[in-house]
Design a protein around this nucleic acid. Structure first.
Lengths: 237, 237
DNA sequence: GAGTGGTCTAGACCACGGC
DNA sequence: CCGTGGTCTAGACCACTCA
């Protein structure tokens, strides 16, 4: 294993091994059910003690990324689609945490004079910024994001490339979210959303509506539609 | 540390140390913010290697039970207050908070040998207790509660009258919930649930699945079905 | 500077799976 | 039987906190 260099903190060896395995999964070198190199093999490959490899793989199992069977081997866990409600969430990070690839398709990015949106943002006058983005996990759509943004809080919103960074990540990076309000519904999607999410007719959506505050201003108001067959919310308290 | 005895599997040392610390918290010997004995002290007390103690405490930190600060010490994490999503736990209180009248109809209250329920409760053998209750707000059904209960934790569960007190209220009254895990789905109800909730065909349900822990035991595992037209989850963060 | 946690090593014994 | 993961030891060096 590489030693720590002069300056610039190096990650712990077990963390590097975790990332290595996650990378293999992200790249598609390892898929669900595939055998992950054994502890002995990783010990040789990384030149570390077995305890170190063991910790890396054990933590990945605790995170649901791997399954380990004594006497048999270590395997990539089947895909699980789930998400936590309580955190202010970034869908891209969640997908990455599962070792999957996130892609986004920007349907629109423009100003909007929708009065209900301007009211939701508690603006005195319009326009508001508006974006519609479909987020994919491994190419499969799992979120339709319909977002209104307060121009006073994020004046450069329209100039961003949201295929590279999610709106959520962009906003959290610029301004700390102080408060959020959410509602969760089970709802049938309209034809527009249903098509973009590639859903069967009759399949319900899990709809998460959220407003977040930065200081005294409503920073953003968003409707997140998720196909029920491929997505659920989860968490612990 | 005790060695493994002749027969009857003994828990790993790190697991015993975890349980020891959890017991101290359950008994109230250790409260939020209190200093947990240092690794060195636990090494002496249990007669194990420091790595073993380290693993026990690290895992408890990952589970949110402890906070560890390098150079300072290990502390009991502050009490995690029930989130909005968990707060629905008592449907009767929610209804009362809206100034409405709550009524309940007990469909069944009995033992059950359902293997998946026994597994969800992490019981070694059955039976489990099982109840099915419909909750009404102003006479309209808004929740179908399908609940399995651990008899070891609530031995008198079957003797209760759940038209007077909700199962949740009963259980919280007897034992403090320490941890909960939940999942939220949008799902089409089966015919049985749909009829009891008086729903239109095609209308989706908001389904909340939750397991709660009392001490080390899974106390209850519940599926809560809500008609999307009359119910949603909400909260602030 | 003493004490804390974070990481790591190079061994070890064991239980289990599959051949 | 061999290879797998699960656990454990008895050291070690380090970064950090706090008095």
């Amino acid at each position: 294993m590489q030693n720590n260099s002069a300056r610039g903190a190096t990650l712990p060896a077990y963390e590097q091994i975790k990332r290595y395995v996650l990378e293999q999964i992200e790249k598609g070198v390892l898929g669900p059910g595939d055998v992950v190199p054994s502890e002995t093999e990783l010990v040789k490959e990384f030149g570390v003690a077995r305890m170190t490899v063991s910790r890396a793989l054990r933590e990945l199992m605790a995170e649901g990324v791997l399954n380990r069977v004594r006497g048999s081997g270590t395997y990539v866990a089947p895909r699980q689609y789930e998400s936590t409600v309580l955190q202010i969430r970034n869908i891209a990070d969640e997908i990455a945490a599962r070792g999957h690839r996130h892609t986004a398709r920007v349907l629109s990015l423009a100003t909007s004079d929708d009065p209900s949106a301007i009211a939701a943002l508690e603006l005195e006058s319009g326009p508001a910024f508006h974006s519609r983005i479909v987020h994919n996990e491994e190419g499969e759509p799992i979120q339709y994001e319909d977002r209104y943004v307060n121009p006073q809080v994020f004046p450069d919103y329209l100039a961003q490339d949201f295929t590279l960074e999610t709106p959520n990540h962009y906003m959290v990076r610029l301004a700390p979210v102080q408060r959020a309000e959410f509602r969760i519904y089970a709802q049938k999607p309209d034809a527009h959303v249903r098509q973009y999410l590639k859903m069967e007719i009759g399949e319900p959506c899990l709809l998460l509506i959220r407003r977040t505050w930065v200081g005294r201003h409503v920073a953003t108001s968003v409707r997140l539609w998720h196909p029920s067959s491929r997505f659920h919310l989860a968490g612990t308290v």
